[in-house]
Amino acid sequence: MTSRRFRRLAALLIAFLPTNGLRRAAYRWALGYEIHPTARVDALSFISVARLVLGPGAHLERFNLFSGPLSLTVGARSSIASSNQIRCGIWTGAAAPSDHSARYQQRMVVGDGCRISPGHFFDANGEILIGDRCWIAGRGSQFWTHGASTPRSTVHIGADCFIGSACRFAPGAAIADNTVVSLGSVVTRSFSTPYRLLGGVPAKELRDIEEDITSKRLFAGRWTEASGV
């Protein structure tokens, strides 16, 4: 308990340090975070997690809230914009044999060259994997890894995917590489075929988009900007 309170207090104080260099050094020294010298952590974000790894050129913007006993990895050149929440409950570490706590991996991994726009929520009690060069666009999407009576605790997103505004991912949801999820969709299961447009409640495959992506009719110049290439 004392250690947890110290880490939360340290995270709060570090958030108000005046320069990126001071914040990086304080996070490494006080909380043991692994932050590359070229990574950037803006002020006024509360980051109190069990483990944080920021790759080269990674960028965490202001007013984010990352908390709980989770491991968070953000890959090279990836950015998480302001007002995002990544949370993991302390209860996931309980070892009581009568519950299902053993299935909660307490882990989120953001691949290289990703862009997460402002205002999303990530329930990282289980495992959230986001592949390279993905774009979590718009606002208000939610990614859930736990729920009543569900044995599943993962959300997996392949590489080169685009997630529109206000989408919902249920525990066990997964999408393949080069998938586009349209605005307001609810993904409740695993989709293993790449190059698909998903949409609806619950989401279903709407059409093949391989030709649109390879011919650059889809995304045009925005895709390279989001991927950091």
Rank of each mutant, 00 (worst) to 15 (best):
F191D: 01
I163G: 04
T179N: 08
G172F: 10
V181P: 12
K204S: 14
S192R: 13
G147A: 11
A166S: 13
E210W: 00
V180Y: 03
L198S: 08
V180R: 00
V201R: 11
I209H: 05
R217Q: 14
A148M: 08
G172R: 08
G172W: 08
N178Q: 06
R207E: 10
D160I: 01
F169D: 08
D177Y: 07
G184C: 05
T188F: 00
D177H: 09
G172N: 10
A203R: 03
A159S: 15
F191K: 01
D208Y: 02
A174F: 00
R217L: 14
T188Y: 01
I213Y: 11
T193K: 14
T154A: 12
H156P: 00
R168T: 14
S185E: 04
S149Y: 14
S182A: 12
A148H: 12
E210Q: 15
C167K: 06
A148D: 11
D160M: 05
V201D: 08
Y195W: 13
T193S: 11
C167E: 06
T188E: 11
L183Y: 14
D160H: 15
R196D: 00
S215L: 02
R189G: 04
C167A: 06
N178P: 00
T193E: 15
I213R: 09
G147Q: 09
G164N: 02
P202G: 05
A148R: 14
T214D: 06
S190E: 14
S185N: 03
D160E: 14
G172I: 09
A176D: 12
S215A: 12
G164F: 02
R189T: 12
N178G: 00
V186T: 12
V201P: 00
L206T: 03
I175D: 06
S185Y: 04
S149G: 02
V181Q: 03
V180M: 13
I157P: 10
D208C: 13
F191E: 03
V186K: 01
V201N: 13
D177Q: 10
